[in-house]
Design a binder for these strands. Structure first.
Lengths: 192, 192
DNA sequence: GTCTATACTTGGATAGAC
DNA sequence: GTCTATCCAAGTATAGAC
């Protein structure tokens, strides 16, 4: 297997492991076992387990941001944005990508170094959400009432909590019904 | 020190440790060091580290639920409920109690046994939030549009995410401004 | 670039003295 | 009920062969 292929398979295994058994279960041995490669390779390629996890975060983040920007760019109204958000949620749920991020956030508690890096990689998502919201709120009465920055941060916060809770309670933590309900709220806030 | 005093001090140390260095940092040794007692006592009194953490969750939960019920019982309108929620948030933020819960949820990923127990202890909070919301939404147009169960679960989900993110980003993850903004939304949904 | 082997560290858990 | 001592398992990280 070439160096690049191995790198990619390691990142994949890292995401899968964190997703399934959490940050504290994602040891170099567990990840290597899951991906079918040697444990020592983690240190050769990424220096440390956290290094591997951050590389994975980079990979996922870039791919997802590009993909989701396209989806959201097409949404002009609040209702359309909610529909796009629901599609995004379903994808993230299936892939487990945000569950991965949630676990990294939780695991950062004891590692200031990791925390700093994770935080830096969340920044583009704050901007992304702000942009989407400010466009969609333009035609609603919410525009004058709720600062977009606050709301964007709240949306990301909720999303993080949702993906964390899904691991604990997969049956119940389904946001689909909530998305539908929120779309029912739209008429109430539309600017007449 | 009597048995009961030791028990209480162990629970306190456990909460502080999880809050400060996260679930994966909260080893029996770390907790014992923090509380100034012997590591072996964790196993004598609680059987395991997870046993201690669950006992702490019981203690905190009972105290907080009773206290917060009083606060919320006095709130009759949505605006008053938001004000009460803001007070609760400030207390939890200071005490770190919900940060503790968030860490337990995250740590449960690899421990089905712990997950089950944590989940069971969240149940009263779902009911609590549902009750509060259904009373407060009665006078608003939201009553017909958003199912209370969905909303209550979403509120708890957000709260969990908020307390998780606060550890990572204490400067920014402040919900105070958001609470204020939400109170500005109330007039929009009041039933005319 | 990938493997084996291993030194070192940390944590869970228990036995037995006090 | 609390302590010391200790065993065992698991994880990090590196050296060195291939």
């Amino acid at each position: 297997m070439s160096g690049n292929e191995t790198r990619a398979s390691m990142i994949e295994a890292a995401v899968a492991t964190v997703r399934e058994i959490g940050y504290s279960g994602a040891t170099s041995r567990a990840i290597a076992h899951r991906g079918g490669f040697n444990q020592a390779l983690v240190y050769y390629h990424f220096g440390s387990v956290d290094g591997l996890l951050l590389a994975a975060l980079d990979d996922l983040g870039a791919a997802r941001l590009e993909e989701y920007r396209k989806l959201v760019d097409r949404a002009d109204t609040l209702d359309e944005l909610l529909a796009a958000a629901q599609r995004i949620y379903r994808r993230d749920r299936r892939s487990g990508h945000v569950a991965f991020v949630s676990q990294l956030v939780a695991g950062s508690a004891e590692r200031p170094e990791l925390a700093r890096e994770v935080l830096a990689r969340m920044e583009p998502w704050v901007t992304f959400t702000e942009d989407a919201l400010s466009k969609a709120l333009r035609l609603t009465a919410l525009e004058d009432v709720v600062p977009v920055e606050e709301l964007a941060y709240a949306v990301l916060t909720y999303y993080l909590g949702l993906n964390l809770l899904t691991q604990l309670d997969p049956r119940r933590a389904r946001a689909d019904a909530l998305f539908e309900s929120l779309r029912g709220v739209v008429p109430l806030v539309e600017r007449k």
